[in-house]
Nucleic acid binder design. Structure first.
Length: 657
RNA sequence: GCGCUCGUAGCUUAAUGGAUAGAGCACUGGUCUUCGGAACCAGGGAUUGCAGGUUCGAGUCCUGCCGGGCGCACCA
């Protein structure tokens, strides 16, 4: 039961007698800001009063006169400039909670009236590279949206659009042909391919730095120095002088930055040259950057040898990814990577050309779009296709194969321009009925405010990250268990399992509880903080509830089957009951805006309500048996709601911790 | 230079144009013969970057400025 949706229906009926289109006004019915304003409030009288030219309080009264909510609400109150405050009836509230209790699988959450077909594109790592910290957000947010939308009755297809066809394979192929350690490849193929990738990547970076970046930076330093050396024109007034001084300061800062960048790059190049292994290889392969591109091009052109190698490497790489997904409990319906669409790209370009949407410019096939400075290039001068081409082919495939109504991309915000152009092109192309959303998020930053890297400048592997989180969780679990007054109660095995749930849960929750397009600051300490708005707090709340049942020797079946009316006399009981009922609202809001943080907010608030209840209302020691049962049932629904809510976020709960 | 995005308490942050900007961390004080103290309660701490504007009402929408992050044809 979604109480908010029900109230909105009632308001729609009342408002339709007063106004042509009640929809925008109905949206102004919402949960109250504070308990003093009741449980729900309607803010529609003010704008309607404006519209009708009548005093808002008068309008509020005429809405209330037409409103039929006697069955679920106390008499509505009109407050302030014209707010309508609603308070749910105690017995109605009790009935709704009982209905949720009677439905342990769905907790009385209704399915969407109009199920849609979603395709969610998330995670999307490059198979040749290990997943790193930047992949967490996409993976975790995407997976939770899949869960929530599916739970609400939508048809959801999850698709991991992996990068299995790009330059990184050219690197591995080149590395394999030139640098492989045959013995290592035989015994540890993944590790050896990883080593080859890193080695070649380093050598390519070296050559590109030597040939392009370093000269470019050197030139920049020169022009910036020259610009600073130019004599300043005499400022006309004080304001201009200030402006000029500021501009000069900025220019100085820019120069310093460029110099620093140049020095850092020079150091890096020097380090490669001085390296015992990489140094000689760099000297022996001066054109490795071009040669790698050649290997990639040969793969794309169907070269037998490269194709064979690709087919040999790919399963190995995929298995490595699969290990990580298994550990964090993420699965996909499909993993149709870039290579899957390879055969369709030429057709896409032809079709766009034929429809007059694309034309050749400067040798490249481009789609020029209104409102964009640059075109979207779908075929390079040398004939190669780009990711824009692949993305268009992918969209077409998803509409044709999955009958998608909506395609969601969980990708970091740096690609927002790309998606804007992609969607605009797709709409011109005829996909104008399709909802396309770029669910963007910020870059993962370290606590120093720079992209999260190790001290040596490498990106941090996801495996290491998980290990560290679980390790820290394990230490805390052990400490806590050892400190229990009745002695430790977890076996070594159980401690491991709990640490896994707590560590990985903390990592996921930290990502899910933020909804920022700005950058995300990664911090072990913050995500693993075992109090506050964290997964651990929720898991702990759950474990505490469960322990009541164990201690009180309570039968769950009895709780589920009980039929007596719930007693909600105590304010904390009532507040908890109301919060439990809002689960459905939280899920709908999460689905409507594709924002898992609305669900984490809800769960945190629920845990908070439970804490207050737990503190103020004795359960096992309640005054009467009836009250004891009623409170136990509230506990039971709380535990179930926490468990289900966390499960939808991809987070496990435990019985004891 | 053009574009996107963000700026809320010391820190991390919440808030579909609605009432007194809500939390957590940290800080201060309190609760306890523990239905699990990884807890709870209370308190201090915010001109929501600045200046205008729209509105009955602005953290939210518009304009300008300041500051951070990111992106700007043939990488993904």
């Amino acid at each position: 039961m979604n109480v908010l949706a029900l109230l909105r229906q009632r308001f729609a009926a009342a408002l339709s007698e007063l106004v042509e289109d009640p929809a925008p006004l109905v949206d102004l019915v919402r949960p109250s800001q504070g308990a003093q304003f009741g449980d729900y409030q309607a803010n529609c009288a003010m704008p309607l009063g404006k519209q009708l030219g009548k005093p808002p309080r008068e309008v509020a009264q005429s809405i209330v006169d037409r409103l039929e909510v006697d069955d679920l609400c106390e008499t509505p109150e009109i407050a302030g400039p014209g707010f309508i405050n609603l308070r749910l009836k105690q017995d109605w509230l009790a009935q709704q909670v009982a209905a949720a209790l009677a439905d342990p699988r769905r907790l009385a959450v209704e399915r969407a009236e109009q199920p849609r077909n979603f395709v969610i594109d998330f995670s999307a790592p490059n198979v040749a590279k290990p997943m790193h910290v930047g992949h967490i957000r996409s993976t975790v947010i995407g997976a939770s949206l899949v869960n929530v939308l599916s739970f609400l009755g939508h048809q959801v297809t999850s698709d991991n659009h992996i990068g299995d066809w790009g330059t990184q394979f050219g690197m591995i192929i080149y590395g394999y042909k030139n640098f492989r350690d045959a013995e290592a490849y035989r015994s540890q193929p993944v590790a050896e391919l990883g080593r080859l990738y890193r080695l070649v990547s380093r050598l390519v970076d070296y050559q590109e730095g030597r040939k392009h970046s370093l000269p470019e930076l050197t030139a920049q330093v020169e022009t910036q120095t020259a610009a600073l050396a130019e004599p300043a024109t005499e400022p006309a007034d004080e304001k201009q002088a200030k402006k000029a001084a500021k501009a000069r300061k900025q220019a100085e800062n820019r120069l310093r930055e460029t110099q620093q960048k140049r020095a850092a790059l020079a150091d890096k190049l020097g380090a490669v040259e001085a390296d015992g292994e990489a140094g000689p290889l760099a000297a022996a392969h001066p054109n490795i950057d071009a040669l790698v591109l050649e290997e990639t091009a040969k793969l794309h052109a169907g070269d037998a040898e490269n194709r064979r190698l690709w087919e040999e490497f790919l399963p190995v790489c995929l298995e490595e990814l699969e290990k990580t997904y298994r550990r964090i409990g993420v699965t996909f319906d499909h993993a149709l990577g870039e290579s899957f669409y390879h055969d369709r790209l030429a057709g896409v370009v032809d079709d766009l050309k034929q429809r007059g949407l694309a034309r050749t410019s400067d040798g490249a096939v481009c789609v020029f779009l209104d409102g964009f400075d640059v075109p979207m290039i779908i075929q390079k001068r040398d004939g190669a296709f780009l990711y824009a081409t692949t993305d268009l082919a992918t969209l077409q495939y998803r509409v044709e194969t999955f009958a998608a109504d909506a395609v969601l991309y969980v990708v970091d915000h740096r690609q927002s321009d790309h998606f804007k152009m992609l969607f605009a092109t797709a709409r011109l192309w005829g996909l104008d009925q399709l909802e396309m959303e770029h669910l963007s998020f910020g870059t993962v930053m370290g606590e120093d405010g720079k992209p999260y890297k190790t001290r040596s400048g490498d990106t941090v592997g996801l495996t290491l990250l998980l290990d560290e989180a679980v390790e820290r969780a394990h230490r805390i679990v052990c400490e806590n268990d050892d400190a229990k007054p009745g002695g430790a109660e977890l076996s070594a095995d159980e401690r491991r399992q709990v640490a896994e749930a707590v560590g990985i849960g903390a990592l996921k929750y930290a990502d899910l509880s933020h909804n920022r397009t700005s950058d995300y600051v990664f911090s072990y300490d913050k995500m693993l903080a075992m109090n506050g708005n964290t997964a651990t707090y929720m898991q702990y709340a759950h474990a505490r509830v469960r322990s009541i049942f164990a201690r009180g020797d309570v039968s769950e079946a009895e709780l589920a089957a009980a039929s007596a009316e719930l007693m909600l006399e105590h304010p904390a009981e009532r507040a908890l009951a109301l919060e439990l009922l809002r689960f459905s609202e939280a899920l709908d809001a999460t689905a409507a805006e594709y924002r898992p943080n609305l669900l984490t907010n809800y769960l945190f608030q629920l845990a908070d309500c439970y804490s207050a209840f737990y503190q103020q209302c004795p359960v096992l020691k309640a005054e009467t048996d009836a009250l004891r049962l009623s409170r136990l049932r509230l506990c039971y629904l709380t535990a179930n709601t926490l468990r289900l809510g966390l499960a939808l976020l991809g987070i496990q709960v435990v019985e004891k911790m």
